[in-house]
Amino acid sequence: VGDQVLEIVPSNEEQIKNLLQLEAQEHLQLDFWKSPTTPGETAHVRVPFVNVQAVKVFLESQGIAYSIMIED
């Protein structure tokens, strides 16, 4: 199991704000291929294997929908 690319769908401005804060966490080494800008629009982010669980827990705790787009 390696890195994953998640497709994330924020449903409101609050969730977009939370994702932008997540993007700013440099220690997570997230690679946003497509940043969140509009509710209902997908964002794509590559998550290093060591941080996959932490990111998924965060998304679930914020009620942000996501799916695994690419499993490496």
Results as ranks from 00 to 15, higher is better:
residue 59 L to V: 01
residue 68 I to K: 03
residue 20 L to K: 11
residue 56 K to R: 11
residue 33 W to Y: 14
residue 32 F to V: 04
residue 15 Q to W: 01
residue 21 Q to S: 12
residue 51 N to S: 12
residue 68 I to L: 09
residue 51 N to V: 08
residue 52 V to M: 10
residue 28 L to P: 04
residue 6 L to K: 00
residue 72 D to W: 15
residue 43 A to G: 04
residue 69 M to G: 04
residue 55 V to S: 00
residue 12 N to D: 10
residue 26 E to W: 13
residue 54 A to D: 06
residue 36 P to W: 03
residue 41 E to A: 10
residue 58 F to V: 03
residue 35 S to V: 12
residue 18 N to P: 02
residue 50 V to Q: 13
residue 6 L to H: 00
residue 14 E to G: 06
residue 42 T to A: 12
residue 59 L to T: 00
residue 28 L to H: 03
residue 62 Q to G: 05
residue 24 A to H: 09
residue 27 H to D: 11
residue 41 E to T: 07
residue 50 V to D: 09
residue 67 S to T: 13
residue 59 L to N: 00
residue 25 Q to M: 14
residue 6 L to Q: 01
residue 38 T to I: 13
residue 27 H to C: 08
residue 60 E to L: 06
residue 61 S to Q: 13
residue 35 S to D: 05
residue 28 L to Y: 09
residue 49 F to K: 08
residue 14 E to Q: 09
residue 36 P to N: 02
residue 23 E to N: 11
residue 52 V to L: 14
residue 31 D to L: 12
residue 8 I to W: 02
residue 40 G to K: 04
residue 36 P to I: 06
residue 35 S to T: 10
residue 55 V to I: 07
residue 46 R to H: 12
residue 50 V to E: 11
residue 25 Q to H: 07
residue 40 G to C: 08
residue 14 E to W: 10
residue 43 A to R: 03
residue 39 P to T: 04
residue 41 E to S: 08
residue 56 K to Y: 08
residue 51 N to C: 08
residue 18 N to L: 15
residue 47 V to M: 02
residue 63 G to L: 05
residue 30 L to G: 02
residue 24 A to C: 08
residue 16 I to S: 03
residue 58 F to M: 05
residue 55 V to K: 00
residue 66 Y to F: 09
residue 62 Q to R: 15
residue 19 L to M: 04
residue 15 Q to K: 02
residue 67 S to H: 06
residue 50 V to R: 08
residue 63 G to D: 05
residue 65 A to M: 12
residue 46 R to I: 05
residue 57 V to A: 12
residue 29 Q to H: 14
residue 26 E to S: 13
residue 8 I to C: 05
residue 33 W to H: 07
residue 44 H to A: 07
residue 62 Q to L: 11
residue 18 N to G: 11
residue 1 V to L: 09
residue 42 T to G: 05
residue 19 L to S: 01
residue 58 F to N: 01
residue 37 T to V: 06
residue 45 V to R: 00
residue 26 E to Y: 14
residue 29 Q to K: 13
residue 47 V to H: 00
residue 49 F to W: 11
residue 2 G to T: 09
residue 12 N to G: 03
residue 51 N to H: 14
residue 44 H to E: 08
residue 26 E to C: 14
residue 35 S to E: 06
residue 32 F to E: 01
residue 11 S to Q: 11
residue 54 A to H: 09
residue 10 P to C: 11
residue 47 V to K: 00
residue 1 V to F: 11
residue 25 Q to S: 10
residue 72 D to R: 06
residue 21 Q to L: 13
residue 64 I to W: 02
residue 4 Q to G: 03
residue 27 H to N: 10
residue 64 I to P: 00
residue 46 R to C: 09
residue 58 F to A: 03
residue 62 Q to I: 09
residue 67 S to L: 06
residue 10 P to K: 01
residue 35 S to Y: 13
residue 31 D to N: 14
residue 47 V to N: 01
residue 9 V to R: 13
residue 31 D to G: 07
residue 13 E to Y: 14
residue 33 W to D: 07
residue 3 D to L: 08
residue 21 Q to M: 13
residue 35 S to Q: 13
residue 42 T to V: 14
residue 16 I to N: 01
residue 45 V to F: 04
residue 56 K to I: 14
residue 54 A to W: 14
residue 49 F to C: 10
residue 18 N to F: 15
residue 20 L to M: 12
residue 40 G to T: 04
residue 44 H to W: 15
residue 61 S to N: 11
residue 52 V to Y: 09
residue 23 E to A: 15
residue 22 L to G: 03
residue 22 L to W: 11
residue 2 G to Q: 11
residue 59 L to Q: 00
residue 37 T to K: 07
residue 20 L to D: 03
residue 48 P to T: 04
residue 19 L to V: 05
residue 48 P to I: 04
residue 63 G to S: 06
residue 35 S to N: 09
residue 23 E to D: 07
residue 51 N to Q: 09
residue 60 E to Q: 08
residue 33 W to I: 13
residue 51 N to M: 10
residue 34 K to P: 05
residue 13 E to W: 15
residue 13 E to S: 08
residue 18 N to K: 14
residue 71 E to I: 07
residue 25 Q to D: 12
residue 59 L to E: 00
residue 11 S to R: 11
residue 72 D to Y: 15
residue 71 E to M: 09
residue 6 L to G: 00
residue 2 G to D: 08
residue 18 N to C: 15
residue 71 E to K: 09
residue 1 V to R: 14
residue 23 E to Q: 14
residue 18 N to V: 15
residue 39 P to H: 03
residue 24 A to R: 12
residue 22 L to V: 03
residue 53 Q to G: 08
residue 39 P to A: 07
residue 54 A to M: 11
residue 16 I to H: 03
residue 17 K to A: 10
residue 62 Q to A: 13
residue 61 S to I: 08
residue 65 A to N: 09
residue 28 L to E: 02
